[in-house]
């Protein structure tokens, strides 16, 4: 089941406390880390917490999450794939 990227963007904004950003300012394919939103390794860990809290997906090694954290779209696809296998 695909998940709405708008909802996911709102969850990212909440979990990372991105105070000045609205969901429509984040493009589906824009990089989340590095230049994009200026996120770093600590934010990746916050996303790990968010995935477990909101979707029940547990990540124990950050390397496992790295490909998923490229953009909002890759994250949505990762969530959908994990949910269908579990």
């Amino acid at each position: 089941m695909a998940i709405a990227t708008t909802e996911l963007k709102a969850q990212i904004i909440e979990s990372l406390n991105l105070q000045d950003i609205t969901p429509d300012q984040i493009e589906d394919d824009a990089p989340l880390f590095g230049a994009g939103l200026g996120l770093d390794s600590i934010d990746a860990l916050e996303l790990v917490v968010m995935l477990e809290k909101n979707y029940g997906i547990v990540i124990k090694d950050i390397e496992e999450g790295r490909p998923a954290f490229r953009s909002v779209r890759t994250l949505a696809e990762f969530i959908a794939a994990r949910r269908s296998t579990s």
Binding site: I42, D43, L45, E46, V48, V49, K53
Partner: peptide, 9 residues
């Protein structure tokens, strides 16, 4: 249940 990776450091 809910780790806090930003707050710890």
């Amino acid at each position: 249940a809910e780790p806090m990776p930003t707050r710890f450091p």
